[in-house]
């Protein structure tokens, strides 16, 4: 139950950073926090009370195993998260080269 709370809080704090912080790197931090929140949400969906890790070695019986599917999904999503963050940060480096500022208010040449 508190895991849901933690996940929802992470998502909320991610969006908070995205909406209220002007600095672009802060925004990317918000995005990566949100990503961890979503991952936590997925894993806590798959948890079963009293279940063990999904590795059927040395006598672990299938009945008492936690649901492995969300873990596979999260594995994929973690890597996606890091690759998007890496790409975003390299684009920010180039933005900085041109605009000399990280403040998203100033990066507004294309409007209307």
């Amino acid at each position: 139950m508190i895991y849901y709370m933690a996940a929802a809080f992470l998502i909320a704090i991610g969006i908070y950073a995205l909406m209220l912080k002007k600095n672009m790197i802060k925004m990317v931090i918000g995005l990566s926090l949100m990503d961890s929140g979503v991952n936590l949400l997925l894993i806590s969906l798959g948890y079963i009370n009293g279940g063990t890790a999904p590795i059927l070695l040395n006598g672990v019986k299938p009945q008492e195993v936690v649901d492995p599917l969300p873990q596979a999904l999260v594995l994929t999503n973690v890597v996606i998260g890091v690759s998007v963050t890496a790409l975003a940060l390299s684009v920010i480096i180039r933005v900085y080269k041109h605009y000399k500022t990280l403040n998203s208010d100033k990066v507004r040449d294309m409007k209307w």
Binding site: I15, L18, M19, K22, S104, D105, R108, D109, K111, W112
Partner: peptide, 17 residues
């Protein structure tokens, strides 16, 4: 109406949320 696209990323995030 054209002013809706203010060019600032944050306003777009506001629209989405």
């Amino acid at each position: 109406i054209r002013r809706v696209y203010s060019g600032d990323v944050q306003t777009y995030v506001y629209y989405v949320i």
